[in-house]
Design a protein around this nucleic acid. Sequence first.
RNA 1: GCCGAAGUAGCUCAGUGGUAGAGCAACUGAUUCGUAAUCAGUAGGUCGGGAGUUCGAUCCUCCCCUUCGGCACCA
Length: 639
Amino acid sequence: MPAITLPDGSVRRFDNPVSGAEIAKSIGAGLAKAALAVKVDGEMIDLVRMIEKDARIEIVTAKSADALDLLRHDAAHVLAEAAKELYGDKVQVTFGPSIENGFYYDFHRDEPFTPEDLARLEKRMHEIVDRDEPITREVWNRDQAVKYFESIGERFKAEHISTIPADEDISIYSQGRFTDLCTGPHLPSTGKLGHAFKLMKLAGSYWRGDAKNAQLQRVYGTAWPSEDQLKAYLHQLDEAEKRDHRKIGKEMNLFHLQEEAVGSVFWHPNGWTLYRTLEHHMRRRLEEVGYVEVKTPQLLDRALWEASGHWEKYRPNMFIAQTEDEKILALKPMNCPGQVQIFRQGLKSYRDLPLRMAEFGSCHRYEPSGSIHGIMRVRAFTQDDGHIFCTEDQITEESVRFCAFLRSIYKDFGFEDVAIKFSDRPAVRAGTDEIWDKAEGSLKAAIEATGLPYTMNPGEGAFYGPKLEFVLRDAIGRDWQCGTLQVDFVMPERLDASYIGEDGQKHRPVMLHRAILGSFERFMGVLIEHYAGRFPMWLAPVQAVVATVTQDGDAYAAEVLAELRKAGLRAEIDLRNEKINYKVREHSLAKVPALLVVGRKEAEGRTVALRRLGGNAQEILALPDVVHRLKEEAVAPSS
RNA sequence: GCCGAAGUAGCUCAGUGGUAGAGCAACUGAUUCGUAAUCAGUAGGUCGGGAGUUCGAUCCUCCCCUUCGGCACCA
């Protein structure tokens, strides 16, 4: 005799176990029709499943936030059904979950899917939705299920059943002629999916996400409750594509990449100006919070990497240089062993701690070819690296200070929304369990002390210590992992770093590895996409262009340029024999924040017609006022 | 690294088993013009690299390189 509590707090009593569908019907015919699933004490289940005990329930409709997952998961199933109908035994199904913005399905098939297959699959999916096939659920006996899936040649499904915990039901869903192992829940029928979906692309993947396993073919799709939402999403994709840093990098002449230096960036004057501005800003901010800057060697003897543990774990990903004397050197993939060498020079006292050592460290890593992406993932990059050598007692305070500093830097670029992930010990690691207990414990205490929310990211720590990962959200809602803070008891031990304590004895310092931007290359890519190339004045490679209407203005324009440059602004002049329309268009496309138009009128009145990027209004200002205003705006943010 | 797709002028792209085309950019000339493309002319390519099939390959086949979309990896 379940008592069902509805979201408004009212309670309905039923004489017998009752299904979500029945409850919805008892509330109203409209709701019964709109119902997609039911949430029972927070867990979403199928409408037809019986609720036997007292529960707090919620009917899920297309309007519910949870409906999206349901919809997309069903879209994946409809895709699988379509694939089985079209290709029969030639294709085997595996998994097809709902993901952010859509879904995918991993198939095994000897022949590759083609773009034409994608069109055929999508067409068949629409037909399946129109058929409005009921989706039913059964619980099967485990052995029977294995036999069934083996008999129809679905060996991945059969294999999967053996990994399902013994106390879990083997639930089987059917729609039309398609029967599948799945935990559910699902919509009541395929018609409820609607037609607001689209297959997007083909890709490769691996069975169970492991590169050692069979290669699968993944079909990606997107699905939404309404056509309008689908359209809006596709539009958003277009917008994101326009921001692609590779495209903007080319358009704005910031950098280029070429075959002879795969994974290394050729910075052009504009891009390098931006880079230096960023570096200068970081250097200034680091000084404010008490860092000293160092520079460590590019090439270091193999022995040092063996001592640090990198050689054992990362040898295949390091660039090696060999010389006539047969010494083997490695291009540094990290800066920490080098910085420890600086720490080790001379005796350090507890009075020297915490020692905050920063380095814009150029590193090389032989990244897998398939992972390289624009300037975001490269083989030669510069970290805004730093290591804080401190005592165990100082870990918390230094971590809290670092988190505040990091957030303040992100704010300089308009990133206010920062998520934090806590990554603990990985399976393969250096150091004893006691050391890891201590390291994780102190990092946890530190993050708790900041009061900032964080989520756990189990097993993803560095081999020498646990870490916090800082993920920022850009202007169009995309997440980028950039900063990191790692607690390391291992490296000081391995590389024999020590200080003299108050007691006159030698002690091991703790190292906090930390980065804010991550790498300059990647962060510049993020900035380009975040700002869509329309950098704020303080970052813009060219801050202002003086453009003349006719030659009458040339002499005065030169004066304006000189004033701007005297004020420290990065300004250019455009005296070409072109129409002002042409110049406006060109400098707008080049995303120059300020365009100063001067013609006869301005020359006579010693004024400037200021046009800001993104607007089409002009403002006539006296020359000193324009210079003053732009100069103010070009000041880098400070804490 | 794995699966799939692509590579043609500086850029964006079209095209064909008979040694290539457009627009923009560049260059030359004309135009001196008031806020997102003035007009005309000229020049520009070993069609990613190598091998093969063919009388003949940019096109067909194979190998390699690079890029793109994912996967895997990311100290």
